[in-house]
Design a protein around this nucleic acid. Sequence first.
DNA 1: TCTGGGGTCCTAGGACCC
DNA 2: TCTGGGGTCCTAGGACCC
Length: 395
Amino acid sequence: MDAFYASVEWLRYPQLKGLPVVIGGGRRNEARMLQELNARYPERRWTGADMAAVPVDFFPRLASYAGRGVITTASYAARQFGVGSAMGLMKAARLCPQALLLPADFDEYRRCSRAFKAVILEIAPVMQDRGIDEVFIDFTHVPGGQREGGRVLARLLQKSIFEATGLTCSIGVAPNKLLAKMASEFNKPNGISIVREADLQPLIWPLPCRKINGIGPKLDARLQALGIRTIGELAARERLWLMRHFGPTHGAWLHDAAWGRDDRPVTTHSEPVSMSRETTFERDLHAVADRAELGAIFTRLCEQVASDLARKGYEGRTIGIKLRYANFKTATRDTTVESYTQDARRIRQVAGQCLKRVDLTARLRLLGVRVGTLRKAGTPASAPAAAPAETGWLF
DNA sequence: TCTGGGGTCCTAGGACCC
DNA sequence: TCTGGGGTCCTAGGACCC
């Protein structure tokens, strides 16, 4: 989906279209926003229905922001100023102080996410969820999926999604997921790009290695240190050489990726591995000096994870915590217990034990709670994890 | 200029088992 | 006195993705 969060906002606030808008820095509370609107523009009774009439001046400027948030989405107009995803808002404010700041409304983004995915499933049922704004689709057995190299189906999907949601997307069609993901970036926004095997050399090889899904900043730096900047330069290295430098698994994968090889199937279902909640504090907290505040936050995180588990119907037996110190170093501790649980008090009790195994003298900026080793709640004999194996007396 | 939140997967060492 | 060769599970950290 193109600039997904920003595009969803434009549906409600078309008056923001074309303006530098940045989304991030907390979550929006629609009720409080209506209150503020009624206070600031009393000549009108504001309801949720007339958001298109909200004056642009109502929205705060980035310049007035003081906090620790990051940008989740920047509108194309804001990107002109060098502002982009994951950038700290304080830095963004210096680059583009006049940008409008919109806290995120995840409920609404999730609603739109479900809507566009439902449209796709109607047309092409082999769809893999890749998060809130992205999917893989297997065109192979969709009627008409091969016409014009997939362009006809891609156009149909774009049109159907736009008619149902008012949102645009960019589609890459290719022989596998690796290339399709890269292709989808070629024609943004609202574009279609088709990459065939023969396009590897002219279209893919000139790109920086970083464009490969799976090569992040660290791997890229290592590659650059070895004089490898483009995918073509990576493809030119011998497979065995890469395996020596990056280990057999990683090295072979790098070589395959550079040659556009990827045989991962489009998977339509997956079970969650873990669920977690975490929060970054407005100011760094100390375990002793801010004990009461931290305790309340800790309890709330446990309750949130528990309610996530219950709502989605899971229970887990690996319970853990995550701390981030003021110096941004992260520590995790977890414990696997005998019986599965989704109970907030039990989670808090076990997570509390984990807290005792970590340094609590330094100031903290983040606290998180995680439950892993999940299974569907209400699985028969909910108590023991597994039957103990019979053991032979000889050993 | 400090850097969100929710995830997955991989690695590596150690415990423990047969 | 010096100690094999599997295997699984657990834990901590880290890279990466949306």
